[in-house]
Amino acid sequence: METLLVFRSSFSNKFWKITVAGTSFAVNYGKIGTAGSVNVKDFPTPEACKKEAHRLIQSKLKKGYQPAVSADPLIKESAMTEDYFWQMLDRCKEKGDDSEEQMEWLISQLAKGPVIDILSFDSILKKHFSQSYTSDLWAAAYIAMGGCSDDCFDYFRAWLLYLGKDVYYKAIEDPETLLPYFGLLQEQEEFPQLEEFLLVACEAFEEKTGRDMEDYWKLYDQLMQDDDPDPDIDFDWNEDDEEGLSRMFPQLWAVYGENPL
């Protein structure tokens, strides 16, 4: 259930929107034409949630708010597009000598924008993160590192995504295109993992609002509603079948089969 109200007068021009889902609702409010602020509240039952939402709606109507009827956009949509997402990652690599400094810059930049942009950044990240959950990429990570658990593969995919749009898409098509990047890591005595990249949006939210991780995920689930699990994949390789892995990715195996990162 979603209700959008507006209040217009000589001194005020603002919106108020409530979105009810299950046992919680999100309230988005602010000046018309902006992204506004967002709060989430939880309740013990769906009935209690709906009752409080109805009370708030009636209270706003009594104060002079009216149901929105204009076809014009009242709430500014997120400026976080796909293109801007990839551009931020490209810029981020120029903002520090190592990944720690770069992640700090990225968190700071996200925290300067509205909360909806932080959520949208995370939504785009999660979409591509899910798309990289493939058997081929897992096999490549296994060969390069001499093993790869579930968590390790998560952090590997975060590292891959952070490399940028072109590298990411090429690697999904052919994981052996990552050989030069593995080589750079080997020279630096590092590993293809970037766990902290998966948390930048949450940390930006905490920096901006002072609210914690639990509040962030409640808000994300309420507004984005796209936190789907990784897709099911059919493994076409076996970790004990070295001959099969070497046939699958001969270039990777030649370099890292016997001497993993």
Rank of each mutant, 00 (worst) to 15 (best):
G210W: 01
K170F: 00
V115K: 03
H54T: 10
N39R: 07
K218C: 05
Y29P: 03
G96K: 06
D227T: 05
P114T: 06
L194P: 02
V20K: 01
I118L: 04
L185A: 14
A201C: 07
L252R: 03
E176H: 01
G210K: 05
D42V: 03
A111W: 05
S37Q: 12
F11A: 12
Q109R: 13
I143H: 09
D42W: 01
E173S: 10
Y220A: 06
L161S: 10
Y142F: 15
K50A: 11
E242N: 11
E82A: 10
I143W: 08
P175H: 07
S10N: 09
R55E: 12
P67I: 01
P46L: 01
Y168D: 05
E242W: 09
S24R: 14
I107T: 09
L160Q: 11
D136V: 00
M213T: 14
I124L: 14
L125V: 01
D98N: 15
V38L: 05
V6I: 15
E104H: 10
I32W: 02
Q222W: 02
Y155S: 09
N28G: 00
I57G: 01
A201R: 06
Q102A: 06
S130P: 04
D228I: 08
F156C: 13
E77F: 02
L163A: 02
L161D: 09
F43W: 01
M88F: 07
W16N: 08
S132K: 08
S108I: 00
T34R: 08
C49G: 05
R211I: 00
A139I: 06
Y65F: 15
T134Y: 08
P180L: 03
F11Q: 13
I233K: 12
K62G: 07
D117S: 07
K76E: 12
D98R: 13
W159R: 10
A35W: 00
D226G: 05
P73H: 02
K127A: 10
S10R: 12
E77T: 11
E242S: 06
A26H: 07
G64K: 09
L5V: 07
R55D: 11
G257S: 07
Q131Y: 08
D221R: 13
H128V: 02
A35Q: 14
Q131E: 15
P73T: 00
Y65P: 03
V255G: 02
P231W: 07
Q188N: 14
E47G: 14
S135N: 08
V20D: 00
F205H: 06
Q186G: 15
K126D: 13
L74H: 04
D150Y: 15
D150L: 12
G33P: 11
T3W: 00
L199S: 10
F129R: 15
W159P: 09
E203A: 05
D215N: 14
M103N: 08
